[in-house]
Simulated assay, not measured.
Amino acid sequence: ARVPRFQMPDDEDLPQFFRNLPFQFQLPEQPQERGPMRGVGSGFIVSADGVILTNAHVVDGADEVTVKLTDKREFTAKVLGVDKTTDIAVLRIAARDLPYVRIGDPKTTKVGEWVVAIGQPFGFENTVTAGIVSAKSRSLPGDSYVPFIHSQIFSRSGGFQGLAFAVPIDVAMQVKDQIQHDGKVSHGRLGVAIQEVNQALAQNFGLKSPTGALVASVEKGSAGANAGLEPGDVILKLDGKEISRSGDLPPMISSLKPGSKVTLDIWRNGSPKQLTATIGAIKDKTIADARDKETLGKAKLGIAVRPLSADEKRSTDLDHGLVVQDVAGAAERAGVRPGDVIVAVNNTPVKSVEELKSAVDKSGKTVALLVQRNDARIFIPVTLG
């Protein structure tokens, strides 16, 4: 089968949790020459009838996915759907009576507990790695969406620092259930930027203890704005559930269905207040299947983009740009990656999808994209399709 170009992540970015599990996927990796490509990734079986969880980027762009079990049986897997917001993919293989993982409760996980990952990193079978839970409800700097679906090694400088992040399994299972039941995933959105409340802020605000999520900014027209949230508010409870740390709030919001109503207990100007919010929806494209990829690949440039959010502008120090959500065809062959931020086309800044389309339409056979990737800016020449 024809397999599109696929860029495997650097070793420091390769998700440990899904890499170190009982079977491997065969999928594309970056080749030295054009032609059919293969790569590997990992996942785990969650039901006896062949339902499998893995990362969305593991199967993204693959024409064919083969699942190899530890007993050496191989199956062609069907991709039921992917959720790019959480980087979860759900697969199914035609098998019955399979052994499957027992799903735990992340709420019972305690700081200091040992955790292990068992799998086949780089093809080495029956490998076990161990670590200790150092904290819960943490997020990566600059990331406006929590939680994290895969384990990820984190480094500010590019070197390994031994920190791994993983999403609660209950969130992953919620995504799986939505994909299986509805064929798509909906994530709730409040539209606020939050930060931790430390002791100094708690004293300044008149709080008895440093708890809750401090609202740093509110996006205009968002669910939070419509509910009356203001910068400086401290969200203490969501539908009666306490917010101990700021990191508790995003996964609670994202698990809610858009349109649902919630009660927010907040602290404002030294006194408690209660607001009602109607949850919005994350506008990102979350479901992609083979047909989406094929259609995208036939486009002139071959990318799906969206404008930077207010949170992303703050975290990246960019005042404009378009985030690449998906890539295929011409852009993929040129090396454009999901997560790249396109800031200019042929040296002309682009602030909207319409401006990008106009710039590409005015170009000849090639176009020069100025891309922000991590902390660096690079020009990528693309031969248009």
Score class of each variant (00 low, 15 high):
Ser209Glu: 13
Val59Gly: 07
Val82Arg: 14
Val59Leu: 05
Asp11Asn: 00
Ala299Asp: 12
Pro121Tyr: 06
Arg19Leu: 15
Ala202Cys: 13
Ile118Gly: 02
Asp340Pro: 04
Lys300Cys: 06
Phe148Arg: 04
Val3Phe: 00
Leu201Asp: 02
Lys357Met: 03
Ala368Val: 14
Thr348Ile: 14
Leu301Thr: 01
Ser134Gln: 08
Met173His: 03
Thr129Asp: 04
Asp49Ile: 06
Val116Trp: 01
Leu236Glu: 04
Thr127Asp: 07
Lys313Asn: 08
Trp114Arg: 10
Ala135Arg: 09
Asp317Lys: 15
Leu369Gly: 06
Val197His: 03
Asn204Tyr: 01
Lys261Asn: 15
Ala304Gly: 00
Val58Cys: 01
Lys72Cys: 06
Pro121Thr: 03
Val341Asp: 13
Gly158Phe: 09
Ala223Asn: 11
Pro251Ile: 12
Ser244Asp: 00
Gly364Ala: 13
Leu201Lys: 03
Gly270Cys: 08
Ile103Asp: 11
Phe379Thr: 14
Glu74Thr: 11
Leu256Gln: 01
Ala117Glu: 01
Glu113Tyr: 01
Pro36Thr: 13
Thr76Asn: 10
Asp177Lys: 15
Ile253Arg: 07
Leu236Ala: 07
Lys176Phe: 07
Thr70Val: 10
Arg102Ile: 13
His150Gly: 15
Thr348Gln: 15
Gly206Met: 09
Thr70Tyr: 14
Gly123Glu: 13
Gly212Ala: 13
Gln174Val: 07
Thr108Leu: 14
Ser186Leu: 15
Thr85His: 12
Arg156Thr: 04
Thr263Gln: 13
Leu370Thr: 01
Glu312His: 03
Val382Glu: 04
Leu318Gln: 10
Asn126Ser: 08
Phe23Glu: 09
Ser309Pro: 02
Gly364Met: 10
Ser155Arg: 06
Ser352Val: 05
His187Ile: 05
Asn374Lys: 11
Gly297Met: 05
Pro28Ile: 02
Asp170Leu: 03
Leu322Trp: 09
Leu27Ile: 11
Lys68Met: 05
Ile88Met: 10
Gly41Arg: 11
Pro121Lys: 04
Ser209Thr: 05
Ser352Leu: 11
Phe17Lys: 08
Thr70Cys: 10
Ala56Lys: 03
Gly61Val: 03
Leu21Val: 11
Ala95Gln: 13
Asp289Phe: 08
Ile266Lys: 05
Arg38Asn: 12
Asp361Trp: 00
Ser254Trp: 02
Ser144Arg: 11
Thr54Val: 05
Ala89Arg: 09
Val215Gly: 07
His150Thr: 13
Arg19Lys: 14
Asp311Leu: 14
Glu196Gln: 14
Ala77Ile: 11
Thr276Gln: 08
Ser254His: 08
Ser137Gly: 08
Ala117Val: 07
Leu308His: 02
Pro141Cys: 04
Arg34Lys: 09
Leu264Ile: 06
Leu356Tyr: 00
Gly297Leu: 04
His320Ser: 09
Arg2Ala: 13
Pro381Trp: 02
Lys78Asn: 15
Arg92Val: 10
Gln26Pro: 06
Arg245Asn: 12
Asp265Ile: 05
Ala288Tyr: 15
Leu308Arg: 03
